[in-house]
Amino acid sequence: MLAAVYKVTSVNGFRAGWQGIPIYLALAGITGRVANCKVILRENMLTLVNPVRSHSLPKTAIRRVSVGDDGTLEVHLDKDRIVPVFAFGGSLIDHFKGSSAEAQRRISAWLGSAGAESESKALAPQIHWTRCPAADASLVLCADLSVAGAIWMALTGN
């Protein structure tokens, strides 16, 4: 992407070339958020980091784990609530590699293991915004540069 911005700038000038920079920053921010997705198993807590929202689930709140029809790993809670796991979203690679099924086996084994039940009973499932500083900075820079560039082009327009 940087090479494309450089090429457009060298052929058409900076006025046209700078416009690729916010696109690059937006793609880097979105890609960074997706790459940040993961599943974290702790002694009595399962943390699901999705692109926008993360879920901290105590062991006692989880009823079961399954792989949906589309290959997405799903964590089932009480009251028929289901939390999809973006990190195991049933991609084409997963179809051949079976990573969602492997994650399901590991989490099911973790659920069946003895843990600190008394500590986790006091905890409730929590949902919070996913923090990804590098991706968020990229998206903020994209917005700032877009606004500044639009103002600059409006003031120097021909």
Rank of each mutant, 00 (worst) to 15 (best):
L2T: 12
L2K: 01
L2M: 12
Y6G: 11
Y6M: 12
Y6P: 01
Y6D: 15
K7F: 13
K7Q: 04
V8T: 15
V8A: 08
T9M: 08
T9R: 12
S10T: 09
S10A: 13
S10P: 01
N12Q: 11
G13P: 03
G20C: 03
I21W: 09
I21N: 03
Y24M: 13
L27A: 15
L27H: 11
I30P: 00
I30D: 06
I30H: 02
I30L: 14
T31Q: 11
T31N: 14
R33Y: 06
V34I: 14
A35S: 13
A35I: 01
C37E: 14
K38P: 01
V39S: 06
I40E: 15
I40Q: 11
E43M: 06
E43G: 10
N44R: 15
N44F: 08
N44K: 14
L46A: 08
L46D: 05
T47W: 05
V52C: 01
V52M: 10
S54K: 13
S54T: 14
S54F: 00
S56W: 02
L57P: 00
P58K: 06
P58S: 08
P58C: 09
P58A: 06
K59W: 05
V65D: 09
V65T: 10
S66H: 11
G68W: 00
E74I: 13
V75E: 04
H76C: 02
L77H: 04
L77K: 08
D78Y: 00
D80P: 00
R81H: 11
V83Q: 07
P84M: 04
P84V: 05
F86A: 06
A87Q: 04
F88G: 00
F88E: 01
G89T: 07
G89F: 06
S91H: 01
L92D: 14
I93R: 03
I93D: 07
H95D: 08
H95V: 04
F96W: 15
K97D: 14
A101T: 02
A101R: 06
E102D: 15
I107Q: 07
I107M: 07
I107F: 14
S108N: 10
S108T: 15
S108A: 14
A109F: 05
L111Y: 06
G112Q: 15
S113Q: 13
S113V: 05
S113N: 13
A116M: 05
A116G: 05
E117K: 09
E117R: 08
S118G: 02
S120I: 06
S120L: 07
S120K: 06
K121Y: 14
K121S: 09
L123V: 04
P125W: 03
H128N: 05
H128D: 10
R131S: 14
R131E: 10
A134W: 13
A135H: 04
D136S: 12
S138D: 08
L139F: 12
L139H: 13
L139I: 10
L139D: 10
V140C: 05
V140W: 12
V140Q: 04
L141H: 03
L141Y: 10
L141C: 14
C142I: 01
C142K: 04
A143M: 12
D144M: 09
L145I: 05
L145Q: 02
V147K: 03
V147F: 04
A148T: 07
A148N: 04
W152S: 06
M153K: 04
N158R: 12
